[in-house]
Amino acid sequence: MTNQATTLPESFRELEPYVADWALPTRQERYDMRLSKTIDELGEFYDAIAPRAEEAIGYLNELDLNDLPDDATRLLHLLYSMVLVSYPVNVFKQPRIPDSGAAFFDTVAEPSV
């Protein structure tokens, strides 16, 4: 990867393989992606981003949240996705919430950033 262009801030370029699937701007897209993956695939993404997460939060904290450059916005979206896969990976051991059957919440409002 190191010789290729990255769409993330330079120091997070190793996460580039996850941008296409997980740097998604809306909860609905992230949730749909979660349900489309196996638990092993969710675990792989979690294991890739978790070790870099504290550093990523520190990086983003130095920027104006309401005026983030595109590369930082992608990194933030990866962290939103990490939040969303954390319960399946750490608690449920499956992509769906256990016993949630047909229940599903549509997102009708979310912050623009």
Partner: peptide, 18 residues
């Protein structure tokens, strides 16, 4: 006010829905 606070909110919102 910053990404840390925003991400904390994301975690609270997601936990609530789960």
């Amino acid at each position: 006010r910053n990404a840390q606070e925003r991400l904390a909110q994301e975690l609270v919102a997601d936990s609530t829905i789960e």
